[in-house]
């Protein structure tokens, strides 16, 4: 079991990422997409947190900010280290390399996330290679052991094959092995199962859960599928246009959704049971790009509860309505 000592592993404060749009020749942008704005999230050691939202809600950008594939515009991400919390944006050189050892990422597309010219061995050994861990023969044993742990058995029949010779499910297992080979504390998984077929998907999801316990890994699980998030996560945060509108323990959130967006999302998910009737959803329209959003609730123009107060006030602050259940809505 992962050490669930209640310690905060990652603490995200007022994180924002703005992308310029309509850039002129001289690099002066006239407006910005607020992909992630004023985003707060604490992830505790050993838990799995899900980030759920529709496409364009900023969940992938958030993942890239946490793994420092992108640098935040404002705000910070504090990662717990032996010397206390450290802002990852300030890491340089050797500290950065150590950070890279602690945080790994699993991507959505098993076909694109592997270099087609590298064998499975080279792919999985890459983190060891760049981190300079182990001798060549050590690496070979480490990779082979881990491949068997992710149920690619026997490892010798996979080591020196190329990604295109493997099926989608097998490739995603390789991607998981690659993420875990340097024993990270924290793994950001961006829709790791959304491109897999149902009959293989369950295997990969169960494997990820087993490995979380075995390797003491904390997950941030990014997905558009609430049913998958329910299965994988202890807590779920619902994102809408760059902000978390509601976050809570998984079952609590699913059974007592408070934010009108969460309610809509929940009643829109089809249920694999022909006798089940869903609640009708009350919102209409689609998600828009948050280009220079007005200072009001992001959900204002689709919200069934919207009133004058919402129109004239800033995006609602997050409040705790029941223990561990936070909602950002004036009407909750």
């Amino acid at each position: 079991m992962a050490q669930k000592n209640g310690k905060t592993l990652v603490n995200i404060n007022k994180l924002s990422k703005l992308f310029p749009v309509g850039q002129g020749i001289f690099g002066k942008a006239d407006s910005f997409v607020h992909a992630v704005s004023d985003f707060n999230l604490q992830i505790k050691v050993g838990e799995s947190v899900g980030l759920v939202g529709e496409s364009g809600c900023g969940k992938t950008t958030t993942g890239k900010l946490i793994t420092r594939l992108l640098d935040p515009t404002t705000g910070n991400i504090l990662m717990d280290t032996e010397e206390g919390p450290v802002d990852i944006a300030l890491l340089k050189g050797k500290e950065m390399k150590t950070f890279r050892r602690r945080v790994q990422m699993i991507f959505q597309d098993p076909y694109e996330s592997m270099n087609p010219r590298m064998t499975i061995f080279d792919t999985v050994a890459e983190p060891l290679n760049v981190q300079g861990i182990g001798s060549m023969s050590d690496r070979e044993t480490m990779v082979a052991d881990l491949l068997e742990t992710v149920d690619l058995v026997p490892a010798s029949s996979f080591l020196f094959r190329y990604p295109h010779e493997l099926s989608g499910g097998q490739r995603q297992r390789v991607a998981i092995a690659r993420a875990l080979i340097i024993k990270p504390d924290f793994v950001v998984a961006d829709e790791p199962t959304s491109m897999l077929d149902v009959s293989v998907r369950t295997g990969v999801m169960n494997l990820m859960q087993d490995l979380a316990d075995q390797f003491d890994v904390t997950y941030l699980y990014i997905t558009h599928d609430l049913a998958v998030a329910r299965y994988m996560c202890d807590r779920i945060g619902v994102m809408y246009l760059g902000k978390i509108v509601e976050i809570g323990e998984t079952e609590d959130l699913l059974h007592n959704p408070k934010h009108p967006y969460t309610q809509a999302l929940l009643s829109a998910v089809p249920v694999p049971d022909p006798t089940y009737t869903r609640n009708p959803i009350k919102i209409s329209g689609g998600i828009t790009k948050p280009v220079d959003p007005p200072p009001q609730c992001r959900f204002y123009n689709r919200c069934p509860l919207a009133d004058e107060y919402c129109k004239t006030h800033d995006h609602p602050p997050r409040k705790e309505i029941t223990p561990n259940h936070y909602v950002a809505c004036y009407h909750a």
């Binding site: 793994t67 050892r101 991507f107 694109e112 983190p127 760049v130 991607a175």
Partner: peptide, 20 residues
């Protein structure tokens, strides 16, 4: 391609990414 991001997350430097 995501595999370039993966290499960066693993700690690969510029030279590593360009040459491998």
């Amino acid at each position: 391609k995501p595999f370039v991001d993966v290499a960066r997350v693993a700690g690969g430097g510029h030279a590593h990414i360009i040459f491998t």
